[in-house]
Amino acid sequence: MIFRVSDLTSDDLEALTGLIMDDDGYSMRVFGRPPKADAARDVLHARPPSLGPESKITLGLWDDDRLIGVADAVRDYPQAHVMYVGLLQVAPDSHGKGAGRALHDALVDQARNSSGIATLRLSIVATNAEAAEGFWRRLGYEPTREAKEWVREDGVITTAHIYEKAV
């Protein structure tokens, strides 16, 4: 497959909403509920309050005219020289076809082109680990000794484990 990666903007809101709504498995595992209708808007705009809009990266992965993946990250979070990957989601029918790796490679390129980014960092919520951990490990991420309590919206208390990879 030949994919195209582009920065996502508000013009892509409908396509991004469709991608997120069509894959409720991720949302159920991480949040304990189906995706919310405004989830796409959050992916495009949410960032830590201490960071400006220039820190936000939202990439889309396209197969022809269909959005099949999204990745969002923020530069210099939680500290300088770190790019925190908040989401990498691929349409279920595109799993196992190189889409996730292609999207990740585009994030790595963004990190390498960003002044001073040395590390990629992410969290894997324990209730999503079976689906996600193997993917991230194949890409070279290793667990740190850090973990945080994660309380899903359905009240389930779990853990988010931190993983990192040098750029």
Rank of each mutant, 00 (worst) to 15 (best):
Ile2Tyr: 11
Phe3Tyr: 12
Arg4Pro: 03
Val5Trp: 02
Ser6Asn: 13
Asp12Met: 03
Leu13Ala: 14
Glu14Ile: 02
Glu14Lys: 08
Leu16Pro: 04
Thr17Ala: 04
Gly18Pro: 00
Leu19Asp: 01
Ile20Leu: 15
Gly25Val: 10
Met28Thr: 09
Met28Ala: 07
Arg33Asn: 09
Arg33Lys: 11
Pro34Arg: 13
Lys36Ser: 08
Ala37Val: 11
Ala39His: 13
Ala46Phe: 03
Ala46Val: 04
Pro48Lys: 02
Pro48Val: 12
Ser50Arg: 03
Pro53Ile: 06
Glu54Phe: 01
Ile57Arg: 09
Ile57His: 12
Ile57Thr: 11
Leu61Lys: 03
Asp63Pro: 00
Asp65Lys: 09
Arg66Gln: 14
Ile68Lys: 01
Ile68Val: 11
Asp72Gln: 08
Ala73Gln: 09
Arg75Cys: 11
Val82Gln: 02
Met83His: 09
Met83Ile: 01
Val85Ile: 15
Leu87Thr: 09
Pro92Glu: 14
Asp93Ile: 02
Gly96Arg: 12
Lys97Ser: 04
Ala99Glu: 04
Gly100Ala: 06
Gly100His: 02
Ala102Glu: 09
Ala102Arg: 14
Leu103Thr: 00
His104Arg: 01
Asp105Leu: 10
Leu107Thr: 12
Val108Asp: 07
Gln110Thr: 13
Arg112Cys: 06
Asn113Ile: 10
Asn113Lys: 12
Gly116Asn: 10
Ile117Gln: 07
Ala126Asn: 04
Asn128Ala: 15
Ala129Cys: 10
Glu130Arg: 10
Glu133Val: 10
Glu133Tyr: 08
Trp136Val: 10
Trp136Ala: 06
Arg138Met: 05
Leu139Met: 12
Tyr141His: 05
Glu142Ile: 05
Glu146Leu: 06
Glu146Gly: 07
Val151Asp: 05
Arg152Pro: 00
Arg152Trp: 01
Glu153Phe: 07
Thr159Cys: 03
His161Ser: 14
Tyr163Gln: 02
Glu164Cys: 08
